Amino acid sequence: MVAKLSNEVKTFIVQALACFDTPSVVATAVKKEFGLDISRQLAESHDPTKRTGRDLAKRWKALFEETRKAFLEDTAAIGISHRSVRLRALQRMAAKAEDMGNMQLATQILRQAGEEMGGALTNRRELTGKDGKDLPAAPAPVNIFQLPDNGRG
């Protein structure tokens, strides 16, 4: 027999699921936060997008929808969504890799930071020049070697 969950615990579960935490992650968080052992299945039963949550009370469905909407609209609250946060984390990782003597890993991290700064990890690409004008044409190759004339020309 499963003990009845308090509204505080149910709110926690519904909001965590609305923020795309998996039922396993939610069950672990409930244990840590409230000291309660709940199953993954019990956590999942609070997700109205799942079959097991189809009979969830309207109150919890509404909370789920509100939380999900706010979560999807507010990426500013997620630190890793900001380039400067990612770069600082990469800087810490690169320094640690160097301290450990792992130059291959440090090089990979530095490459990733360079890609981050160069916009390679974004959806934006510059396909035009400044102010929307055409990109400058590449200069024609110059032949720096000249064949001797040998009087045949």
Rank of each mutant, 00 (worst) to 15 (best):
G153L: 11
I13K: 02
G53P: 03
A18Y: 03
V26G: 09
A140E: 14
R51M: 01
V85K: 09
A95P: 10
K10P: 03
E73P: 05
F12R: 09
M93Q: 13
L105Y: 06
V2H: 00
K31R: 13
S84Q: 13
T11Y: 10
K4A: 12
K96C: 15
G153T: 06
A106P: 00
L110N: 15
Q104E: 13
T75V: 01
R124M: 11
L17P: 09
A120V: 14
Q91W: 11
L17E: 09
E33I: 04
L135G: 07
W60T: 11
E66H: 02
R40H: 04
T122E: 04
A140H: 12
E44P: 00
P23C: 05
V14E: 04
A3R: 15
P139T: 07
H46I: 09
I109Q: 02
T49N: 05
T28Q: 14
L110H: 15
R111F: 13
L121F: 06
T107V: 07
T28L: 05
G118V: 10
M100G: 11
L5S: 06
D134I: 06
P141N: 06
R152W: 14
V142W: 13
L90V: 00
K96R: 14
L105P: 08
Q108L: 13
I109V: 02
L127R: 15
N123G: 02
E73W: 01
Q41N: 11
G79D: 07
V85C: 03
D74T: 02
R152H: 12
R125S: 08
G153S: 11
L17W: 05
L63N: 08
A27C: 05
A140R: 12
G114I: 07
K69D: 01
V25I: 13
K31H: 13
L105W: 00
L110D: 15
M103A: 14
P139N: 05
A62L: 10
E65I: 04
P136C: 00
N7C: 08
L135E: 10
D149K: 13
S81E: 11
V85Q: 03
T107K: 14
S39Y: 08
Q112H: 15
R92N: 14
E115G: 12
T107S: 14
E116V: 03
K133V: 05
K31I: 12
F20I: 05
M117Q: 09
G151F: 03
M93L: 12
P148F: 00
V85T: 11
A16G: 05
G119D: 00
A138M: 15
L42H: 06
L105F: 05
G101Y: 09
A3P: 07
K130Q: 14
G114F: 10
R59S: 03
D74C: 03
G114W: 07
L17Y: 07
K58R: 11
A16P: 10
A113D: 08
S39C: 12
L42C: 03
K69L: 04
R40F: 11
I144V: 07
A27T: 06
A106Q: 06
E73R: 07
V9L: 04
Q15P: 00
Q91Y: 12
T128K: 14
T11P: 02
E65Q: 08
L90E: 00
L17V: 00
S81P: 06
R86F: 07
N150Q: 11
A76W: 15
F145M: 10
V142Q: 14
R51W: 01
A95Q: 15
K130G: 13
I109A: 00
S24M: 13
K69G: 00
V9W: 04
L121M: 04
E98L: 04
